[in-house]
Amino acid sequence: MFSYPLVNVLGACLIITSMMVVLARTGRASAILYSLQSLVLVGVLASLGAVTGSTELFTWSATAFATKVVLVPAILLFTLKKIGDDAQADLPPKLNPMKSVALVAVEVFVCFVAVSGIDLPTAAAVKPTLAVSLAHFFIGLTCIVIQRSIFKQIFGYCLMENGSHVTLALLAPQAPELVEIGVATDAIFAVIILAVLVWRMAHYAHTLDADDLCELKG
């Protein structure tokens, strides 16, 4: 049952869920969709572990479950609650949905072209997933660039993190657990710091709109 096509299918689901995170309207929906996306990520790591037979990847998927699926969305939902109505997390993004989807599709395609020249230690069959994880870096950047609310931009950052994690898992499946602990800690602390910054900005400037903040209006 566990085999390379499953990894690829989960990789595709990763794209779909990230797209939903980018397109989500409210902050709450973004957080829940991000949690769902991390769940798919855990699935990718677990199936990759089953395929390559490395126990480290199973540990990774467990820690990723604890940090990404549970902890990070919880932190962000808590921040959202503390900010209250000021959150303005449902400001519309700069690109309409169709262009965002088209942009995501183009990024996935370009990343696929880019990775076609790389030899994976795992297998050639999971190359589409490598393209997907590389594309996540760019999807995260897309999210940061097109969102107007800085609360939503945190999700872009988290998507970039997810992308780099899956890339790491694909290129170095036998890496020791210490690496994973370091990476997870970095993710958690970065999110905490970002959340605190967002809360302070909301408190003092009373706006989370990036356009206004760039001109120091409040």
């Binding site: 990789g11 595709a12 797209m19 309409n96 169709m98 262009k99 989807v101 088209a102 996935v108």
Partner: peptide, 19 residues
């Protein structure tokens, strides 16, 4: 309607990639 075109082009990308 253009959003639906976007999703259709996503399926084209998946076809081309081979997922």
């Amino acid at each position: 309607t253009w959003f639906v075109v976007g999703i259709a082009s996503l399926s084209l990308v998946f076809l081309v990639i081979g997922i």
